[in-house]
Lab assay of single mutants.
Amino acid sequence: MPSETPQAEVGPTGCPHRSGPHSAKGSLEKGSPEDKEAKEPLWIRPDAPSRCTWQLGRPASESPHHHTAPAKSPKILPDILKKIGDTPMVRINKIGKKFGLKCELLAKCEFFNAGGSVKDRISLRMIEDAERDGTLKPGDTIIEPTSGNTGIGLALAAAVRGYRCIIVMPEKMSSEKVDVLRALGAEIVRTPTNARFDSPESHVGVAWRLKNEIPNSHILDQYRNASNPLAHYDTTADEILQQCDGKLDMLVASVGTGGTITGIARKLKEKCPGCRIIGVDPEGSILAEPEELNQTEQTTYEVEGIGYDFIPTVLDRTVVDKWFKSNDEEAFTFARMLIAQEGLLCGGSAGSTVAVAVKAAQELQEGQRCVVILPDSVRNYMTKFLSDRWMLQKGFLKEEDLTEKKPWWWHLRVQELGLSAPLTVLPTITCGHTIEILREKGFDQAPVVDEAGVILGMVTLGNMLSSLLAGKVQPSDQVGKVIYKQFKQIRLTDTLGRLSHILEMDHFALVV
């Protein structure tokens, strides 16, 4: 994948999101292997301009796509893939009243899908469409860049269908997702969380590099694949309309690839034109409109599966009536509230959605109805927002919020430890010299600072030695090549209790 991002070429006709291997024109390309080798690009942008032909009021008969309808489940399912879809609609009884809503608040519980998330729908649909058009064949390999849930859905379907599955996901995604993927037989590649989507090191860039190296491999490409919004247009939206008897006044959905909100909203605009569509985008993402909503100094966020630093091709923002931004604290607070007060075992993005819903639905009156999409299960986040310690460490809970008995030293300040200034190293000294210094002084790690004293990161003896043994660096290389740029900081005025929580999850903390 090139470091400079080429513009994806656009073909003359058809839909841009065809499933299957992508040609340089962004659509299915038939021909000899030699032709494909000559024409197939190194990668295709996940934010390529959409060429979708959908228009409100256009006859369904003019759609270029294969459409399906929700099917009634048999008493005995032939395999677990038949437990994807037909998820329950559940009334939220307490939270709406707590925040003064007059309307009825309903939750579409997508964590009841077989793999635990709304992404099971698009995973199965992308595979079925690729099999139907002859792209996927027995023994082929599926590769997908994902925040985890699409990966789980694909790995689940691949396990049943017999495909090899490789999932490329950023490091910030939970260990629970990784464990589930491994249990399903998927191979996992992790990428830096802070890598831009168009960087060769991003999950998108690495996935395309693997595709170019592995024979008979395919990126189904949830960011561009029409099967993504079509899955929701054909099934999720129809289920909502049936469950609500066609009567709903507002739908609120958090947005990642945009397939969920695009597919549902398009069908609702056709069948229930008075329904307002509300999009939820986390602070630090750029999906919301108008652009002024996205202006923030924050560039990272903890909530998973929603928000991006690019506009995915499948996201149709014209069908969203209003956007709201959400933050991590309210997302996790509301997710825990949904679990504790409503018994809905949902993930953090569901918290984002409901946090926005109780604001947006203030305009609705008694007798009206708001539906929220709860995308995934708490299963993926047992060591994250479900953990009091994690919430404390991230600053989303305060010590006084917890009532468990603490040891005698818990409320003492870090400054009472009488710490001395640490050994520091410059980023320009060599790895070999740094190892000598650390061994001589008896230290395992040291902060790396520039000549102005600005902290650049941390270097550890173990990481340097393993990097040297693996051949990633040489003793003569500058130590700046092996620094940890993500590390926890703590102030002298913070409590030892807070430091204790940090050290339970990290090997060190830097006192500043």
Rank of each mutant, 00 (worst) to 15 (best):
P2Y: 07
P2I: 12
S3D: 02
E4F: 02
P6A: 08
Q7Y: 15
E9G: 10
E9P: 10
E9S: 02
V10W: 10
V10Q: 08
G11S: 13
P12L: 04
T13P: 09
G14A: 06
C15A: 02
P16A: 08
P16F: 02
P16Y: 15
P16V: 02
R18L: 10
R18M: 05
R18K: 13
S19W: 13
G20E: 13
P21W: 11
P21S: 14
P21T: 13
P21I: 04
H22S: 04
S23N: 02
S23T: 02
S23I: 15
A24W: 02
A24V: 13
G26P: 05
G26M: 15
G26S: 15
S27T: 13
S27V: 12
S27I: 15
L28Q: 10
E29L: 02
G31K: 15
G31Q: 02
G31A: 09
S32R: 10
S32H: 02
P33I: 15
D35A: 12
D35I: 15
E37I: 09
E37Q: 11
A38G: 11
A38L: 15
A38M: 07
E40G: 13
E40C: 02
P41D: 07
L42T: 09
W43V: 11
I44C: 07
I44F: 12
P46K: 02
P49S: 10
S50C: 02
R51V: 02
T53C: 07
W54L: 07
L56S: 12
L56I: 12
G57V: 13
R58H: 13
R58S: 02
R58I: 10
P59R: 02
S61K: 02
S61G: 02
S61I: 04
E62R: 02
S63T: 08
P64C: 04
P64T: 02
P64S: 07
H65F: 05
H66I: 15
H66Y: 12
H67M: 05
T68Y: 06
T68V: 11
T68E: 10
A69W: 02
A69Y: 14
A69I: 02
P70A: 10
P70V: 02
A71W: 02
K72T: 02
P74I: 07
P74W: 02
I76T: 02
L77N: 08
P78R: 02
P78V: 06
I80L: 05
I80H: 02
I80P: 04
K82E: 15
K83T: 09
G85H: 10
D86C: 06
T87Q: 02
T87W: 02
V90E: 02
V90D: 02
R91C: 02
N93E: 05
K94M: 12
I95H: 05
I95Y: 02
I95G: 02
I95D: 02
G96D: 14
K98R: 05
G100S: 07
G100H: 02
G100R: 02
L101R: 02
L101A: 10
K102R: 14
L105D: 02
L105E: 02
L105P: 06
L106F: 13
C109A: 15
E110F: 05
F111C: 07
N113C: 08
N113H: 08
A114R: 06
A114G: 10
S117D: 02
V118D: 02
R121L: 04
R121W: 02
R121K: 07
S123D: 02
S123V: 02
L124Q: 15
L124G: 07
R125A: 15
R125S: 11
R125D: 05
R125E: 10
R125F: 10
E128V: 13
D129Q: 11
A130C: 07
A130E: 06
A130Y: 02
R132Y: 02
R132L: 07
R132S: 14
T135C: 02
T135W: 15
L136H: 02
K137I: 10
K137T: 07
K137C: 02
K137F: 10
P138E: 08
G139S: 09
D140N: 02
T141I: 15
T141E: 02
T141W: 15
I142R: 02
I142K: 02
I143L: 07
I143R: 02
E144S: 06
E144V: 08
E144A: 02
P145C: 05
S147L: 02
S147V: 02
N149S: 02
T150W: 02
T150P: 06
I152F: 06
I152R: 02
G153F: 07
L154S: 06
A155S: 11
A155V: 02
L156I: 05
A157R: 04
A158D: 09
A159L: 05
V160T: 02
R161V: 08
R161T: 02
R161E: 02
Y163S: 02
Y163R: 06
R164I: 02
R164V: 07
R164C: 11
R164F: 05
C165M: 07
C165R: 06
V168T: 02
M169G: 02
P170S: 08
E171G: 05
K172L: 02
K172W: 02
K172H: 02
M173E: 02
S175L: 07
E176P: 02
K177V: 05
K177W: 02
V178G: 04
D179T: 15
V180D: 02
L181K: 05
R182D: 06
R182E: 07
R182H: 08
A183T: 09
A183C: 12
A183S: 12
A183V: 04
A183L: 04
L184I: 10
L184E: 06
L184K: 02
G185M: 12
G185Y: 02
A186S: 02
A186H: 02
A186F: 02
R190V: 08
T191I: 02
P192R: 10
P192A: 05
P192S: 10
P192G: 02
T193S: 02
T193M: 10
T193Y: 08
N194M: 10
R196T: 10
F197S: 13
P200C: 02
E201F: 08
H203I: 02
H203P: 07
H203S: 10
V204L: 13
V204G: 07
V204C: 10
G205D: 02
V206D: 04
V206N: 04
V206A: 08
L210E: 02
L210V: 07
N212A: 05
E213I: 08
E213T: 14
E213M: 12
I214M: 09
I214A: 02
H218D: 02
I219S: 08
I219C: 02
I219P: 02
L220Y: 02
L220P: 04
D221R: 02
D221F: 09
Q222P: 11
Y223P: 08
R224W: 02
N225P: 06
N225S: 07
A226I: 09
S227R: 06
S227M: 07
P229F: 02
L230Y: 09
A231I: 07
A231W: 04
H232W: 02
H232K: 10
Y233G: 05
Y233L: 04
Y233H: 08
D234W: 02
T235N: 02
T236M: 10
T236G: 02
A237S: 06
A237M: 07
A237W: 04
D238R: 15
L241S: 02
L241K: 07
Q243V: 09
Q243C: 07
C244K: 05
C244L: 05
D245C: 14
D245W: 02
G246S: 08
G246T: 13
G246N: 07
G246A: 05
K247V: 04
L248A: 07
D249G: 14
D249N: 04
L251S: 02
S254G: 06
S254L: 02
V255L: 02
G256A: 07
T257F: 04
G259S: 05
G259I: 06
G259R: 14
T260D: 02
T262C: 09
T262H: 06
G263N: 04
G263D: 02
G263V: 04
G263S: 04
I264Y: 04
I264S: 04
I264C: 14
R266F: 06
R266G: 06
R266S: 02
K267L: 10
K267V: 09
K267S: 02
L268V: 06
L268H: 06
K269D: 05
E270W: 02
E270H: 10
K271C: 15
C272V: 13
C272D: 15
C272F: 11
C272E: 02
P273V: 10
P273C: 13
P273R: 08
P273M: 14
G274R: 11
G274I: 15
G274S: 05
C275T: 05
R276T: 14
